[in-house]
Simulated scan of single mutants.
Amino acid sequence: MHIESRRTPTARVTQNVLSVAGGGDAGGETVVLVHGNVSSAVFWRGTMLALAEAGHRPLAVDLRGFGDTDPAPVDATRGLRDYSDDLLALLDSLGLDGVHLVGWSMGGGVVLQALRDRPAAVRSVTLVNPISPYGFGGTHGADGALNHPDGTGGGAGGANPEFVKRLAAGDTSADSPVSPRSVLRSSYVKPGTKIEDEDEDAFVASMLSTRTGDDHYPGDTVASGEWPGVAPGTRGVLNAFAPTHFRLDDLHTIDPKPPILWIRGEDDVIVSDTSLFDLAHLGALGVVPGSPGTPAQPMITQTRAALERYGSYTEVVLDCGHSPHIERPAEFRAALTGHLKRS
Rank of each mutant, 00 (worst) to 15 (best):
H2M: 08
I3M: 08
R6E: 10
T8H: 08
A11Q: 13
R12M: 08
R12T: 11
Q15V: 07
A21N: 13
G28K: 04
E29L: 10
V34T: 07
V34E: 08
H35Y: 13
H35F: 05
V38M: 05
S39C: 04
G46D: 11
M48T: 07
A54N: 07
A54G: 07
R57D: 12
R57I: 07
L59D: 03
P71I: 04
P73R: 06
T77C: 01
R78E: 12
R78D: 08
G79D: 13
D92E: 14
S93W: 07
G95T: 08
V99D: 02
L101G: 12
L101D: 08
V102Y: 05
V102M: 06
G103D: 14
W104H: 15
G107P: 09
V111I: 10
A114E: 01
R118E: 10
R118V: 11
R118F: 01
P119L: 11
A121R: 15
R123C: 04
S124Y: 10
V125F: 09
T126G: 01
I131T: 05
P133E: 12
Y134L: 00
G137Q: 03
H140N: 04
H140M: 13
G144C: 11
A156Y: 00
N160L: 03
E162R: 03
V164L: 02
R166A: 06
T172G: 03
T172D: 14
S173P: 04
S173T: 05
D175W: 14
V178D: 11
V178F: 12
R181S: 08
S182P: 12
V183N: 03
Y188L: 06
V189N: 02
P191E: 09
P191V: 03
K194S: 09
E200G: 02
D201T: 13
S206Q: 14
T210S: 15
P218H: 09
P218G: 09
D220G: 10
T221E: 15
A231M: 05
P232T: 07
R235E: 10
R235G: 00
V237Q: 12
V237L: 14
N239A: 10
F241A: 00
A242R: 02
P243Y: 00
T244V: 09
F246R: 00
R247H: 15
D249E: 12
D250C: 01
L251K: 00
H252D: 14
P256K: 11
K257M: 07
P258N: 05
W262A: 03
G265Y: 02
S272E: 00
D278V: 01
G286I: 06
P298N: 07
M299K: 03
M299W: 02
Q302C: 12
Q302F: 07
R304P: 01
L307P: 02
E308R: 14
E308Y: 08
G311A: 14
S312I: 10
Y313L: 09
E315G: 11
V316W: 05
G321Y: 07
R328V: 13
R328F: 03
P329Y: 10
F332T: 06
R333N: 15
A334C: 13
L336D: 04
T337P: 07
G338F: 12
K341D: 11
